[in-house]
Design a protein around this nucleic acid. Sequence first.
DNA 1: CTAATTAAGTCAAGCGAATTGACTTAATGC
DNA 2: GCATTAAGTCAATTCGCTTGACTTAATTAG
Lengths: 404, 404
Amino acid sequence: MDDISPIRAKSGTNQEGTSAHNRRVMIEALRLNGALSRADLARATQLTKQAVSNIIEDLESDGLVVALDAVRKGRGQPSTPYRLVPEGAFAIGLHIDRHLTRAVAVDLMGSVLARAEANLPFDEPSKGVEIILELIAGVRRDLAGISVQSEKRLVGLGVAMPGPFGLKDSDDKWMMPAWQKFPLLEALAKGTGLNVGLQNDAAACATAERIVGAAHGVDHAVCLYVGYGIGAGLILNGELYSGGHGNAGEIGMALLAPAGPGSTPLEHRASLASLYQHLDLNPADSDIYEQMNALVQAEDAKMMAWIDGAAHDLRWSVHLIETIFDPQTVILTSGAPEALARRLVEAMHPLLPSIADRPARMLPRLQLGTTDPWSIALGAAAAPISRAFDPLFSAILKTRSAPA
Amino acid sequence: MDDISPIRAKSGTNQEGTSAHNRRVMIEALRLNGALSRADLARATQLTKQAVSNIIEDLESDGLVVALDAVRKGRGQPSTPYRLVPEGAFAIGLHIDRHLTRAVAVDLMGSVLARAEANLPFDEPSKGVEIILELIAGVRRDLAGISVQSEKRLVGLGVAMPGPFGLKDSDDKWMMPAWQKFPLLEALAKGTGLNVGLQNDAAACATAERIVGAAHGVDHAVCLYVGYGIGAGLILNGELYSGGHGNAGEIGMALLAPAGPGSTPLEHRASLASLYQHLDLNPADSDIYEQMNALVQAEDAKMMAWIDGAAHDLRWSVHLIETIFDPQTVILTSGAPEALARRLVEAMHPLLPSIADRPARMLPRLQLGTTDPWSIALGAAAAPISRAFDPLFSAILKTRSAPA
DNA sequence: CTAATTAAGTCAAGCGAATTGACTTAATGC
DNA sequence: GCATTAAGTCAATTCGCTTGACTTAATTAG
């Protein structure tokens, strides 16, 4: 009756694992390269033409890929390129923020097919969950109107919300204490009947940049997300890294100096929360976005001062990230209006000299990512799709079957 | 003749990959658990008894595992445990530091079987390489005296030296400018005929902790190495992370504050180099180790002051690491005498409150790792063994065969 | 002391997915 | 019009894991 074996070991694999991996590799190759012929795929994946042919045939009959018109390109038989079918899979993404929640439905390619948003009561998760379930149901209905097969092809629900998760009880107003304690995932799984996964908002942002943005196909990238708080989404070795307890990248609590008066959490200086405070804005205002935009356009003195201050600390953050992670690029994204984010990035230049100042860079040290407020929900939705279709180590291994 | 295909894709796999993975999983399981029967292995790896039997038979005939006496444990046929054979594989590890180089020969279990050290000319890599090749040759001879099969079973040469690597030309005295430019790996590969791999000293230290130290079997750990410089070795998801260009964890260049007088690289405050400077010691002295030890034992005022200062900044570093990586534990290791390292860890307490203050911790937030000066060479030697025997994603994939 | 039970491990046939090598198809280039 | 080149298929093979029955050897119950 000892329920957990004390033996520690990785799981082995078999032909199912092989086959699953190869399918995923095909799908990823088509996602990254657009459309490829079987011969192209065989060369790219190191598999034989025959193996590729079999897999593609499978994927085609599963409705995940489709053949395009044959193309002639020099000698030899014309090749038939295949591309992914967007309607091959769908996922729901949910972004929960302090005062607002957004839900989207996306397809296999990461296109947003339906979206909806609603206000959230900051301190009443049980009421909030009802609102959220309603929101998700609405998005699912819209999706069903677009594709008849949507329900059958729905791979899961991805949730993104501000971290960190699983700490000691905390009443820090910067976090969402009531939500941290609520059994959210269970409630959502029960209410939707879907597989539910959770990540923090910065991680979702990084995932979004990875599928449709500046990090597309980049294996080592860090995505700084300046939202109500500030966090970093980590793409390491081509996969999202979430740490030992799902809290990796929660850089907002990093201290700006070892001690003394300058020893402030980054979040208190470079986040929209600090901006709201600095400018005496109310984050619950529905036109908060327009207010910020107007202040930036008008080059309001207090706004400019905040930008300079935040840029100062962000410049340091980028240096730190480069020093610690050695990424190919750093991407700054934000829930703020694009004009503000752009100003911020401009104010961060020139960047501090760092290890990233290398002779032959392919990508800029710092890029402006998307400022679309829906991108976090998009990234959240991408997580279940990635789990289902990307070539992951874990996808090769045999899964522990439930005991009798 | 386009030498590089523009198509980006991961490699596929086949039964060879499956089999290679399963072999590696068995070896890892035996390494982590000591000795296991076939039935144990089958349960732990999810493979069938039969599959395990075949693999174990293979491993046994390859001389990598050996059967122990059968043990009776309750009803049923007694089980026959198997354990790894240390002499199943060997590797050479090389630690290159500013003034000193060390070489070790280790076996599959990470035991050091031979060791040798020599002084290095700081600015003459070409002469240095001769010394190193001599050193390695000596260690190999010693190893051959212990095991006849050693040469046949030598899987590679792992090199550890201070990073960062591949930067713009730099004359920073803290680094090793002459060595950075020298084609070291090529020279060593040519001179030894072995596969050569390179990592920075902190990464090697983390690897050493992983196989024989505090990080044994831990999947998320950061190893702070206080040597001549300071660096962090990152164990993420059970594997060493080296970043986009092999420089991840080079935390020594992290700035202690965004700007102003406190904006100093960590390395200038918390590293043995800073200690030497503070105490006016000469790092090239052969009894430097004893000198430091004596000062600590005598509770020398300047030494204590340095410890307090360094501990202050290291406390901040640990907080930063916890915030960014969310590891299960942080391990402090050092090239300094154990008494000094122990004092340093004591002076770092109490740690700053952080995200790592969670209710149910399995491991301490901060642990003292090894201070054995040979551990970096050991970690360097572990790298080729890990590449050859650990279950890695990359080991499953088909390898791109060289074109005709 | 014997029989039932439990668990380790083997045997032999089966299966699934990639491989192999010959073959077909359909273009271009000379 | 023929040789060449490349995409893609066909059919047989291979290889490693799985399956299910079987053997071996211990403990426990009666």
